[in-house]
Write a protein that binds this DNA or RNA. Structure first.
Lengths: 195, 195
DNA sequence: ACCTGAACACCGTTCAAGT
DNA sequence: ACCTGAACACCGTTCAAGT
């Protein structure tokens, strides 16, 4: 029996872990305080001892999702991919981080990682490019993840279908390398794009 | 007295117009079917004669927001700006279009406009670049709009503040020109960026 | 330190019935 | 063609009170 849904008492970490697991099962739209409470065998009001609002809980989940992004700078494409993959780790992870991100000012973990990679590659305007890159990655990942979910539920109009996510990796790489341009070694990104 | 909130009967267009006006007043989070109904002096259930679900109503609003985007191709930067400005016309317009967009497959109005502009500029991979550009514009506009709203309500931690949206225009232009690269005349976009 | 119980002010949606 | 009235199964949040 998992310790997550018996009648022991909980701390902030336990609540966050249960909420993150539930997010992956039901998605952001169905992640209610009442459902999280029910998963923990607790009344909904109990959650408000650990978090002052649902928004604060969601911000904590967004922090946990992005916390796995490596801080040591690899090249820009690798960094961008690791951000995207972190967002993909949990269902609706991209949408959650996107809608939470605006409340932090400037320096998120992901943005800082991108900025370091850009500087290492000798990019001009590294800070502004990092912001643009982050906006692209968040927008792209959110759209792709929504589409994945819509596909799996047959909610899309029938058609060519099949490889809906097929060209998306290429679009992602094309976008990242375009936004990372203005660096010393453009040639590398161009070469990687053809792999 | 406006014809929008008396007791006359309504059609699909009238409901959509009222909902769009209400969106601009209260924002997406507070745009409920019950509020829209109340604005129209009608029971909530009445809305379901015109739209089969809230999701369908929101999709209609997203279509109306993006319908003002010019179809005739200007240069890529101008097209991208007109998409962004259409999203900015209504409160939370970017978020609404972003969350609605995944359900359409491929060819949205905005994407088609970007693709035409790219082809006209002689871009390689015009279709894929158009998708990447659209993802950037939607991500960027959503983040900026959220920040604008958070700022106006003092929901952000105090700090440097003042010109929060100041550098964002530059980031937008930098992102668009980067993603439009690979065209015949790169020089033009570089020159525009310095203006 | 952590939780219950009850309440408040909301949601989206369905459906028979009215005009 | 368009709407009412009532109901169903939900929401987030607050707060006194319990242990």
């Amino acid at each position: 029996m998992s310790p997550d849904h018996n009648s022991t008492r909980h701390d902030r970490d336990g609540v966050a872990r249960a909420a993150l697991a539930l997010l992956d099962e039901v998605g952001l739209a169905d992640l209610s305080m009442r459902r999280i409470a029910s998963r923990l065998d607790v009344q909904p009001s109990a959650l408000y001892w650990h978090f002052s609002s649902k928004q604060e809980l969601l911000a904590e989940l967004a922090d946990r999702i992005t916390s796995t992004i490596p801080s040591d700078a690899a090249d820009v494409l690798t960094t961008a991919r690791s951000i995207r993959d972190a967002l993909f780790t949990y269902r609706d992870g991209a949408e959650l981080v996107l809608s939470t991100y605006a409340l932090q000012l400037g320096s998120s973990h992901a943005q800082a990682a991108l900025e370091r990679s850009l500087r290492r590659q000798g990019s001009a305007d590294a800070e502004e490019r990092a912001v643009a890159l982050l906006h692209f990655v968040l927008g792209h990942a959110t759209l792709v993840q929504q589409r994945m979910h819509a596909d799996s539920h047959g909610a899309l109009p029938a058609g060519e279908a099949v490889d809906v996510t097929s060209g998306l990796d290429r679009i992602f790489d094309l976008g990242v390398t375009g936004l990372a341009a203005g660096t010393v070694d453009d040639g590398i990104s161009e070469r990687q794009l053809r792999s």
